[in-house]
Design a protein around this nucleic acid. Structure first.
Length: 414
RNA sequence: GUGAGCGUAGCUCAAUUGGUUAGAGCGCUGGACUGUGGCUCCAGUGGUUGGGGGUUCAAGUCCCCUCGUUCACCCCA
């Protein structure tokens, strides 16, 4: 029996793994500069935690969660997103605001896979808990933009909106329903209208886009407080020349969002053009049992970012050390070669050898592994206490003393 | 969950309207070069044509089912 990848999952290795490593290590460095520290939470949590925070009527909770019972009958779920766990941890450990965390890891959603969408996917995200200042909204958006562009993605656009607080949303919901009732909408939207009228504004159907092109803006329904907050956010963004476009249609699929919401889109992706998304969630901490505490965060999909970078022909840096290959001619030489390889590795050289191939095949392997140098251990040279050092780029080679290998290598490699 | 396209060697793809033993390039192994990679040439290796059923004298090719995959919708990172 041969086994295959489970639908929607993938292996990342060889020519691809450096892309993930590059994004992860670069992100860590930048996020830490912005004052965020890493948090690692479990990959599974109580099912309740997610349905409570994401919202029971959302698609994620209704049909996309990997839920199961453990041997004691506990209802558990593989995390479909990162925020809930982090807020849980924040409340559980009675942390004192302000707290800024970032996380890197896999998320799980039972969706039909397509370009840029997988059932297991990697996310990098941040949460800034404890500040209501519009400055933190801007910091967070600025960071998102800075990080993505630092990672090599250009042509980024910020979609920005405010969906207000509980009060504003109730007011707006009524106004929106009145507006939609008079329109000719697609079947899906008619169904959605009563369930969650905000979704209609997300519809990609041309007819729907046309007839809802001038929806009542939620911005008109914002209460004084939310209005002021949003105005300040925009003011600060403008002051720092962070360009954005306001999009009153931007609603996000998780119920915990309040006030500022945003997405960063790139035209390097197909239909899945949104690479990063986030917003404020001022009620979530309280909802999960903590003191009322405002917070804001975002996350981006690493897999999707890789796709976007690839399509933009970005050259991923390869920071791995140059390889030194150790080749041998005979069994006795092989023992010497093994000894040399051991020695070099303890000196932190990146070193590889093979134990069964002919010398010719060993050289060929060295070539395939893109070795910069090959140390050839031959019986003739061993008699004089020497080995051959072959430069794989130009094919030049010379004999050197066995004791001096490290010295020579250090000179050549750096 | 809905719709469309595609499944042939490790990879990328051929195979006339259904017709003899399913081919090529790349890769891999070896040789030309007895202890030296890349370039060239030569040879070898490689397949339950995704799986199951059906139609037919004959199926990689047509039909049905199923699985996988890709893309789009929904939704989202």
């Amino acid at each position: 029996m041969r086994y295959k990848l489970v639908k929607g999952t993938k292996d990342i290795f060889l020519n691809d793994i450096n892309k993930w490593q590059y994004i992860e290590s670069t992100s860590k460095k930048i996020l830490e500069d912005f004052g965020y520290s890493e948090i690692r939470t479990p990959i599974f949590e109580s099912t309740d935690l997610f349905s409570r925070s994401i919202g029971v009527s959302t698609d994620i909770v209704e049909k996309e969660m990997y839920s199961f019972k453990d041997k004691k009958g506990r209802d558990l779920t593989l995390r479909p997103e990162g925020t809930a766990s982090i807020v849980r941890a924040y409340v559980e450990h009675s942390l004192v605001p302000p707290v800024k965390f970032y996380h890197i890891g896999t998320m799980y959603r039972y969706e039909k896979p397509q370009s840029g969408r997988y059932r297991e996917f990697y996310q990098i995200g941040i949460e800034a808990i404890g500040s209501i200042s519009p400055f933190i909204d801007c910091e967070v958006i600025d960071l998102a933009l800075f990080l993505l562009s630092k990672l090599g993605l250009t042509n980024l656009k910020i979609r920005l909106n405010s969906i207000g607080c509980r009060k504003c949303r109730e007011v707006y919901k009524k106004i929106l329903l009145e507006y939609l009732k008079k329109k000719e909408l697609c079947k899906d939207c008619i169904r959605r209208m009563n369930l969650n009228p905000f979704r209609v504004l997300d519809c990609k159907n041309e007819q729907c886009i046309r007839v809802t092109s001038t929806p009542p803006s939620i911005l008109n329904s914002l209460c004084e407080d939310c209005k002021k907050h949003f105005a300040e956010v925009k003011e600060i963004l403008a002051e720092y020349k962070i360009s954005y476009f306001e999009d009153p249609r931007l609603f996000r699929g998780l119920d915990y969002y309040t006030k500022t919401t945003f997405e960063i889109v790139t035209d390097e992706l197909g239909a899945k053009n949104s690479v990063l998304g986030g917003g404020r969630y001022d009620y979530l901490v309280e909802e999960l049992g903590g003191d009322s505490t405002p917070a804001i965060g975002w996350a981006f999909g690493v897999d999707r970012l890789v796709l976007a970078l690839e399509s933009a022909k970005f050259r991923f840096p390869d920071e791995s050390k140059k390889l030194i290959f150790i080749a041998w001619t005979t069994e006795t030489a092989k023992k010497q070669a093994f000894k040399i390889a051991r020695r070099l590795r303890t000196e932190e050289f990146r070193c590889e050898m093979n134990y069964e191939k002919s010398l010719k095949a060993q050289l060929k392997l060295a070539d395939r592994l893109e070795a910069k140098l090959t140390v050839i251990v031959g019986t003739h040279e061993l008699k004089e206490g020497k080995v051959i050092l072959r430069n794989m780029e130009d094919g030049s080679q010379r004999k050197i003393d066995i004791e001096k290998i490290e010295l020579e290598l250090k000179q050549i490699m750096c």
